[in-house]
Design a protein around this nucleic acid. Structure first.
Lengths: 360, 360
DNA sequence: TTGAAAGCGCTAACAA
DNA sequence: TTGTTAGCGCTTTCAA
């Protein structure tokens, strides 16, 4: 274990001042001869600038934070791969945290990132505006991916419907022109990279409708307000509320929700699962109850994951570009020179395989 | 965006020196009254010590690095979740990198971690001893998870067989008592957290044997030397080398390998896939070639992933505790106060579902 | 038990 | 174009 060379060592060996070394290495101005000499000495000493000194001086850690709910969910794995790919090509470190869809853990992780002075963050948020305000107030550049923080539940239903629609389009919901109540925090003004959930869900519902399905259920998970809203919109009023159920994010709870749904409403003929973990649960629950797919029940799942093709029948899915999402988010957060990046909405695609059939 | 309080602010407000604040906050000695006052002021100012200052002073970044081949591989997702869970409970940051099973990218990421002065690292290695020597020389505490670096290919076959067996048991291969050649780097002396591949593979092969299978193939991926060696050992000499094939880690190459295997050797009756991506490929390739599982071909897959149950038939698997592996590795690397942690081998379990049948 | 002071390695302001 | 210098926020001697 040898000691690493410091900028001072290089400066001495090259017979220049430390500032010159710093300049040369960060592309500042220097005479060609000096530059060459410094570079040679640096290579010779195998000098690598320490991020520690730079970080302290600049009062910020380079790179970015990444917060996802669960890495065993393949979609978040894809998203993370996208972020990492972009960060790697920029040579930037990524500090990762997994929130388990728990706002408290999320808050803890945000605190940890603040302590590290990580000032750029990509997050699939679990908490609400209150959870996120410390990060915002500290001046972090935050980008939400895949979803937006839950609105305050105190929101009145009418306004909430409106907000949901705005959220569906990925517009960072600047408050609609109605009197602001003091009590509830205003929606966060944070850019995001989202899939076009509205179109994705609409396409799926129309497809099922076209197959003759009328009782279509939605199996949702945490943070899927936008997808549910899109679902409600797509099926149109009146919505059969019993057909809209939620799990909490764990596989067990997803299974329980799916199973409960099938048992309480044997008359449903199709279900849209809001994510791959939910789709997994739906397949399992259907099998357990001897419901055949697609004969007894048709299934469309959000997320195209490799195993969707392995199921029999292979699953019809709403594909969203998880990897691209991550990559784009990382690009935005890296290129943002303090300026607020703009939001991005990426397209979804209905991939028809074998899990949907005509209504019997 | 408000400015954060520094230790100096706290010291002034409490009417003490900065050293005292530092001591109190890191549990050093101080009179009860002083301690109380400092704590109160710190809370009052919402003071959070900056990791930046501490890191520079201590010439090391806290937390740990984590290098995995691919986060869309569910097993590595599980492993990462384990690491993150442990790190979170310790309040430590995790810097993540994905290597794509490419030694060059791995080397770049190691360089990045060195630059960040991250001195603790958990890695699923892709490169060999040469790739890893910079990290070791820099004094990083490294722990390998899931597998060990490839031995130098120059290793002579006999010695290599011996080494493989030692590796199989997770013994950090201290060089056997034979003359060291100067040319090849000696095996790394790095602790590891591994699954008991030898037992896992042996159990699977015996199970298949018991079902009457004689032509059993192994479908491997990068870094699976230990599993192949275990396979060779389990089937016993002479090994039909055509039945041992490899993909490079990408899904495409895994599929190509599986498909090639089935086509070139239609006489095989069972295959052991060395990982879930390979198992996925085997299922796909079998289906494409109209081979029915388990009627035409029996399949055992390494890794128990949620979708293994969704396949039809559900896949018989060799389960290894991915999450535990990550957790244990993180514990080891965190508790290692500079001392070299010892290695750990975790048990595997053959979970019999429906993808294996009697030899026709 | 406490405080003063010396840096950790780097960048940026300022002078030359 | 260059070098000198002053910190960034913290921990850790060393004295008091």
């Amino acid at each position: 274990m040898e000691k690493r060379a410091t900028i001072k060592d290089v400066a001495e060996a090259a017979g220049v001042g430390v500032a010159t070394v710093s300049r040369v290495l960060s592309g500042g101005s220097a005479s060609p001869s000096t530059r060459e000499r410094v570079l040679a000495v640096a290579a010779q000493l195998d000098y690598r600038p320490s991020a520690l000194g730079r970080n302290l001086r600049q009062r910020r850690t380079g790179g970015m934070g990444l917060l996802v709910p669960d890495l065993t969910d393949t979609f978040y794995g894809q998203l993370a791969e996208g972020v990492l790919a972009c960060a790697r090509s920029a040579g930037e470190p990524v500090v990762l945290g997994s929130t388990g869809d728990d706002p408290e853990q999320e808050a803890d992780l945000i605190g940890m990132l603040l302590e590290q002075s990580v000032d750029r963050l990509i997050a699939v948020p679990s908490g609400d505006a209150e959870t996120w305000s410390p990060a915002i107030r500290a001046g972090m550049t935050v980008i939400f991916a895949d979803r937006l923080p839950a609105q305050s539940p105190a929101d009145d239903p009418a306004a909430s419907a409106l907000t949901d629609l705005m959220l569906m389009d990925g517009l960072a919901a600047a408050p609609p022109s109605r009197p602001q109540s003091q009590a509830q925090p205003r929606p966060l003004d944070v850019p995001s990279v989202l899939a076009d959930d509205r179109a994705g869900i609409r396409t799926a519902v129309r497809y099922l409708r076209g197959l003759g399905h009328r009782r279509i259920a939605f199996l949702g998970g945490p943070g899927q307000q936008r997808r549910v809203a899109a679902f409600r919109e797509a099926v149109g009023a009146p919505v059969d509320e019993e057909l809209v159920v939620f799990g909490t994010g764990s596989r067990d709870s997803a299974y329980a929700a799916a199973s409960g749904l099938f048992q309480s409403r044997p008359d449903l003929s199709a279900v849209v699962a809001g994510g791959n973990v939910l789709g997994e649960a739906a397949v399992l629950a259907a099998r357990e109850l001897d419901l055949r797919v697609p004969k007894d029940v048709s299934l469309v799942m959000y997320d195209d994951v490799p195993w969707a093709e392995l199921c029999s029948p292979p699953l019809t899915v709403i594909a969203q570009p998880g990897r691209d999402m991550g990559y784009r988010a990382a690009e935005l957060v890296l290129r943002s020179g303090g300026r607020r990046p703009r939001s991005v909405v990426l397209p979804t695609e209905l991939i028809i395989r074998g899990s949907c059939g005509p209504h019997r």
